[in-house]
């Protein structure tokens, strides 16, 4: 039986006065892969970045919950985002929540592989170090090995952990970033188009990896490629012009979309 990890309610983001995403509500299941699809600028990345409060760092971005204004017949943003995103039932936008601690639990992998200009070992060990997850050097070594193994990279790099992370190939770098993210001990891993900068073989390896990882982590992935969403995800949500159009089990959504816009998008008529 699947449980709900994130429960999102009427989430809205404005960039200064420009609307980034409006009135999105959805549930994201624990230990499943949820894919977010849609055309460029549809708000799917914005949504992803709300789940670990990365948008807090953009001064002009304002995350809030919206309400329906009967007079204007429109959704209007409220003053803050209290209650807009619940994680395991806890409000991650509550004033008492430290966004830094939240991001330890909700890790992130980015579009372009971005390893630190440090050794492979230090890349993976960074999270455990700042969060004090390892008491001794042995424990740290163990975490690094486990994370690299989970990311399917251990056998490839175990003899050159001291080499810079930037010396790896693109696909390896991205797996290093995944290893780095899971070494920090998260419950959720957010992936923002993780394969868009990779070749098909590297993409295949990472997709396989995601299948493994969902045993331990909740994964939310933004992807450009509908076939990728179809291959890897359990559930898929389709965004259009900043709004959530449809969300369903992946097979259901692709084979039998309820909405015409969804139908148009997955059949390649626009987007």
């Amino acid at each position: 039986m699947t449980s709900v990890k994130f429960s999102v309610n009427q989430l809205t983001v404005y960039y200064a006065i420009k609307m980034g995403m409006q009135n999105v509500s959805m549930d994201i299941n624990d230990r499943q892969i949820t894919a977010l699809i849609g055309a460029s600028g549809c708000g799917k990345s914005t949504f992803l970045r709300c789940l670990n409060r990365m948008n807090d760092l953009i001064h002009v971005a304002k995350v809030s919950r919206c309400t329906w204004d009967e007079a204007n017949k429109a959704f209007v943003p409220t003053a803050d985002a209290t209650g807009a995103v619940l994680m395991d039932g806890d409000d991650i936008y509550a004033p008492t929540v430290d966004a830094v601690e939240l991001r330890q639990k909700v890790g992130m992998v980015f579009q372009k592989p971005n390893p630190f200009p440090k050794s492979i070992y230090d890349n993976v060990a960074y999270g455990p170090r700042i969060h004090g997850l390892a008491g001794t050097q042995d424990e740290l070594d163990q975490i690094v090995e486990e994370s690299l193994t989970k990311a399917g990279l251990w056998t490839e790099v175990n003899d050159r952990l001291k080499q810079p992370g930037t010396s790896l190939s693109g696909g390896q770098q991205q797996r290093l970033c995944i290893a780095r993210a899971i070494a920090a001990g998260p419950e959720v891993v957010l992936m923002d188009e993780p394969c868009s900068a990779l070749d098909p073989i590297a993409t295949g390896i990472i997709e396989e990896l995601m299948g493994e990882l969902k045993k331990d982590y909740t994964i939310v992935i933004v992807t450009h490629s509908m076939s990728q969403a179809r291959r890897v995800s359990d559930r898929t949500s389709f965004f259009h012009l900043g709004e959530l159009v449809e969300m369903n089990d992946t097979e259901q959504l692709f084979d039998n979309p309820e909405n015409d816009q969804t139908k148009g998008f997955i059949s390649g008529r626009f987007g």
């Binding site: 430290d98 830094v100 601690e101 330890q104 700042i130 969060h131 004090g132 008491g135």
Partner: peptide, 11 residues
């Protein structure tokens, strides 16, 4: 002890 969250690291 280690029971506390990360904001309480000894460092």
């Amino acid at each position: 002890g280690e029971t506390q969250g990360l904001k309480h690291l000894p460092r």
